[in-house]
Simulated assay, not measured.
Amino acid sequence: MQAFDQIQELWQKHEVEVKFSADEMLQQAKKEVSGIKLKSALNIGGMILSFIAIFLVWIFYDYQSWTTHFGFAIVLSAILISTLILVRDYRLIAKSDYTVHPHEYLKNLKTYQLNRYNLYNYMYWVYTVALSLGFILTFMEILSNLSTIQKVVAVALTFLWILFCSTILRKAVVKREKERISLLIEKFERISGQFSLPS
């Protein structure tokens, strides 16, 4: 037992110190920022493609009911507004360089974090309600051309998809992004605290 206590004491005295240079920490943080910017750009691109696809479906098919046109207008407005919010957030993290303006960049990153929180917790529900309302109005005419089984399948799949995106997928994305941005802010704050960079 005495040998075990000696080993434990030796282990507690042993400290492993991992040192990163300022350049290594900064390069790692910049790589993570690049990943966030790429993801944001891909989200914007996906929203633009969705807007174009839905707009083309609206224009090239002959819809008779005003509810269908109103539904498409609601869906396209929701996508456009969400895209503009994504572009605003992208520009926030892409507009300045940490090495040139560290305090401004940290401020922008914290604003980005707050914007993302608002997007996922408030704007997401506005977006979901707008899409749901738009789809309901659009489906009023489209579903009238389908059989009963096709109607049930179309409505059920749409409902399940919105439910999946609103619960499981949204929570996973929010958690992952919150952790990622918080760690990034922490890294930049640590770099700022350890190394003096010109403002």
Rank of each mutant, 00 (worst) to 15 (best):
H101M: 06
K31S: 12
A156F: 10
Y90S: 09
M140A: 06
V100A: 09
Y90M: 02
L183Q: 15
F164A: 07
D97A: 03
N43G: 01
E186R: 14
E32A: 01
R190E: 14
I168R: 11
I181F: 03
T128H: 01
L143E: 04
Q8R: 15
F70H: 10
L114W: 08
S34D: 12
R116L: 12
N118Y: 06
I74T: 11
L26W: 00
I142M: 11
T158P: 00
Y122P: 01
V152M: 05
L133R: 08
I185A: 02
Q150D: 04
A154M: 08
T99W: 01
F135N: 09
W125K: 03
Y98E: 04
I7Q: 07
M1A: 12
R88L: 13
S147L: 01
V153E: 05
K13S: 11
S196N: 12
S199L: 07
R170S: 01
V155D: 13
L131R: 01
Y63D: 06
Y127D: 09
L183F: 13
I36F: 03
V174W: 05
E177T: 11
Y90C: 12
A73T: 15
S199K: 11
P102F: 06
A94G: 08
S40K: 05
E9D: 15
L114H: 11
Y105F: 15
V174H: 04
Q64M: 09
F20G: 03
F188L: 00
I52E: 04
T68R: 08
A172I: 07
F60V: 06
K39S: 08
F70A: 15
L146C: 06
K178M: 06
L131H: 03
I162M: 07
L143G: 02
L38Y: 08
D89F: 05
L26H: 00
F4G: 03
Q12V: 05
W11G: 03
F72T: 03
F60E: 12
F188Q: 00
T138L: 15
Q150L: 01
R88H: 13
K19R: 14
K171V: 06
A78F: 00
S192T: 13
S96T: 12
K171C: 01
L76D: 02
Q64H: 15
K187S: 15
T167I: 09
V87P: 01
F20P: 02
E15V: 10
L119M: 06
F159K: 07
K110L: 05
Y124F: 15
D62C: 04
I191Q: 00
E32Y: 01
F135R: 02
V16Y: 07
L42K: 14
W11D: 07
I7N: 05
F188N: 00
T68Y: 13
T128V: 10
V174I: 14
Q2E: 15
L84N: 12
L106A: 05
T111P: 00
E24K: 10
V87Y: 07
S40I: 00
M140R: 11
F164W: 09
V33K: 08
I181R: 08
T167F: 02
A130K: 02
A156S: 14
A94I: 04
E104C: 01
